Simulated scan of single mutants.
Amino acid sequence: MTSDIKVKICGLTRPEHVRWVAEAGAAYAGFVFFPRSPRNLSLGAAREIAIEAPAGLAKVGLVVDADDAALDALMAQVPLDMLQLHGHETPARVAEVKARYGLPVMKAVGIAAAADLAQLDDYSAVADQLLVDAKPPRDAVLPGGNGLSFDWRLLAGRKYWTRPWMLAGGLTPDNVAEAVRLTGARQLDVSSGVETAPGVKDRALIRAFVAAARQTSMPQAAPRLR
């Protein structure tokens, strides 16, 4: 049975990527604005790609510790539906961004151990959505998109947050069903898992990932003992 799971394909760099994402049935298209990323877009290129997005496909702009000037320029040129804050933004900064631009804000939080989960409670008070990602290694150049996952069992059986949340980090068409089974995630974010090289999206992998996600159903509850 097809589930209600929503998929975000992040790191789109070409106009055809938007078409592929829409055709596959994903709910979100992600664009990266971080110079050190191989998926980074100029504002002009992002605008050309974003205006090709069909109605109903939410356009998400990923930024890393961006100041007001950078965000002002981004919002003036690129038609976005949501901002994704993927740096060290504090809860106060999340609230500032949300109030300044009037768009929904998704805050990414890196997870490596159970102690990291407490941050999600803090951000759920101000963000519209949460992105639960793998914490990057200390020497990592990128805050996300590294193809790494965390121990999904950390989320098993947890009482979830008051905001919608999205699972990210090391997801592929082959492991997405297991990820959903262990975490109960209803939204999934993928970037490197549907690429043939950093920043090079693959149409077949996008289709395979969305199909695998949408065909995944929640595990049934164990029968009640009499």
Rank of each mutant, 00 (worst) to 15 (best):
A118Q: 14
R158D: 14
S217A: 07
D189T: 05
A125Q: 14
D116K: 07
R163D: 08
R93H: 03
D65C: 06
I51Y: 10
A115K: 03
D68F: 06
V60D: 01
A208F: 04
I51H: 12
R93T: 03
R186N: 10
A212D: 07
A66G: 10
P54Y: 07
P136W: 14
L80R: 11
A29Q: 02
W161V: 04
A213V: 14
A58I: 13
G102F: 14
A58C: 12
I111S: 10
A222R: 04
A50Q: 05
R14K: 14
V194M: 04
Q77P: 08
P91G: 08
F31V: 03
D174R: 12
G87T: 13
P35V: 06
E48Y: 03
T13R: 10
E23L: 03
N40Q: 11
R203T: 09
A108L: 01
V132W: 00
D4N: 09
G61K: 02
Q187E: 11
A112F: 10
L74Y: 09
D72I: 07
D128Q: 00
F31H: 03
L41N: 12
P54E: 07
E96K: 01
V78M: 09
D174I: 04
Q84N: 04
R138M: 06
V7F: 00
L83C: 10
L154Y: 10
E23Y: 00
V7G: 00
L131I: 03
P219C: 14
G157E: 14
I51C: 11
S42Y: 12
P143T: 02
A69M: 06
V126E: 05
L117N: 05
A140L: 06
D133R: 07
R19Y: 01
A92F: 08
V109L: 07
A58W: 02
W20E: 08
A22V: 02
A58N: 08
D139V: 11
M218G: 02
I9T: 09
A156T: 15
D202Y: 05
A125R: 13
G145A: 03
V60L: 06
D133W: 13
L171A: 12
G44L: 11
Y28P: 05
V60W: 00
A108P: 02
P143W: 04
K135P: 08
P91I: 09
T183W: 05
R100N: 14
R207K: 13
D121W: 06
A222F: 00
R181D: 10
P79W: 15
D72W: 07
D116G: 12
M218R: 03
S149Q: 12
A127W: 00
V176A: 01
L205T: 04
A66R: 12
L154F: 12
L117F: 03
A140M: 07
